[in-house]
Amino acid sequence: MERQRPRIGGVLYRASAYAVLAFVLAPLAVIVWVAFFANPIIGFPPTGYTLRWFARAWASEDFRSGFLLSVQLGIAAAAISLLLGVPASIAIARHDFPGREAINTLLMAPLVVPGIVGGAALFIGYLAFELATGIQIAGNLAGLLIAHTLLAIPWTVRLVTAALLRVDASIIEAAVNLGASPFVAFRRVTLPAIRPGLVAAVMLSFVISFIDLEKSLFLVGPGRTTLQIAIMNYLEWNLDPTIAAVAAVQIAIIGLALLAADRAVGLTRII
């Protein structure tokens, strides 16, 4: 199966492929590297290595509370989108009903509407609601959670639907044939079979929520900022090793979540 490659063209082509990959990865690698530099101002080469920027980042009220809020939001958004998305996926993957395509399109819509537009609309909607009822949503946790759940729903529906469709319909029929009621068949056969899809959905939902910037932009309030907004605000005035440490931590967390998703189902299959 050894395939011949033409000499110069082949070398150039391989080199360009790796150069492009390096271009994508290099900045991320560099910022992780910089996070360990001892230099108090970002500069090259490093004068030594230290971990104190991580401690300083954690000591910063903005980063710490932003981080905690983002983690909470990510977990809550993933959980709620699972609650809303799994039944919807079952309807789409297993049943035929008028309007099925329309509902699928609608559930995917948060992916297509630009983040900044959706965020603006939600912000305006919240304020209009507040004007009408006096109940405040914008700037508090509920408002953010709704926005982040909205972001997670299309991913959950898409992943769980795909997982359901990959389940061989005949194994469910086999269970029913052996005497399992539809509910028991779902619990004993379908659920274990789609577990990887559920894991991937939770991981992806968490990541999508965690890194969201545009939708949250309108909805954060004083003292209630997500990590991404905190990073944005910080970067407008500073670029120092502390922010590099924050970036390094984020890269590590997201990397782990995505690797978990990849172990569950091939990551490249789901993006």
């Binding site: 005949s170 194994i171 086999a174 044939n177 005497g179 068949a185």
Partner: peptide, 18 residues
């Protein structure tokens, strides 16, 4: 319903629970 019929069905692709 199929789960109350007590038929033993062997599928073309076997349909074993993986």
């Amino acid at each position: 319903p199929p789960h109350r019929r007590n038929t033993g069905l062997v599928f073309q692709n076997y349909a074993l629970f993986p």
